[in-house]
Amino acid sequence: MWSIYSVTLRGIWRDKVLQGMLLVALGMLLVPVISPMSMRQVTQLSVTLSLSLVGFLQFLVTVFIGGTLLWRDIDRRYLYAVLGLPVSRASYLFGRYFGFITFLTILTLVLGGLAVGMIVVVGTIYPPAKALNLVTLLTALGLGALKFMLLTAFSMLLCSVSTSFFLPIFGTFACYFMGHASQQVYDYLTLGSGALVPPAVQWAAKLFYYAVPNFSAFDYTIAATYGLPVNPAEIGWVLLYFLIYTGILLILSVLCFNRREMQ
């Protein structure tokens, strides 16, 4: 597994993905220029913009690199050579996954550091009425990275069942948007307006809510923007949820991948 892990990391490095992302992340230097356009919440706008840019880059990397890890190996017939070696399919899958999420962690550290730097600069020039909460800001960045690790596990599952390029890419896109919308739908049904929706639709919507990954659980952008404190117990539940859900997805991926005919 470790050899696959290091090959994955080296491959991403060789493709100059980090450098490319850093080039795009230079856009973050515009944050102190754009933020003063807000009339009443300059620092808050800088937090929102910075976190959005970090999230957007993580999303691109997850979909176009994480989502095509297995597909590229199959397409280039590299996978058949690897599986001819004494490497189990599970080891191969885990090596790929952990290699990619290590890269995602490095990317988050670099982009997050840049974002925090820009936010601190803006916060020093335009001190907000309510002080920035660095713990919440770092929590938002960290949980944002976990969200994309979970999304990568989902794309691994899609890759393990399909040879097509489209299923992992569009499936990951769809999962990302559904995972964000599910909490809003659930809240709509359970907080106030549920009575207007037929019971069958309510039941189906709740089933959908429990089945798809809940990315709202990882979303602390608003808390970071307004400097709200975070509840450690709540973070604990989110971490537990991440570990369990990711574990389920990876095991399902292994089960599907083991059954797959490789010709």
């Binding site: 907080l191 923007t225 989110v238 537990l240 389920i248």
Partner: peptide
């Protein structure tokens, strides 16, 4: 997989309650 699915069911309820109790809705958002 079975063990993790059981854990998932056990975690869901407290997780959903903690999300709905979040102070995030102090703001309607930007």
């Amino acid at each position: 997989l079975v063990v993790l699915l059981i854990c998932y069911v056990l975690v869901l309820n407290p997780l959903v309650r903690s999300i709905q109790a979040r102070p995030l809705d102090q703001k309607a958002g930007v």
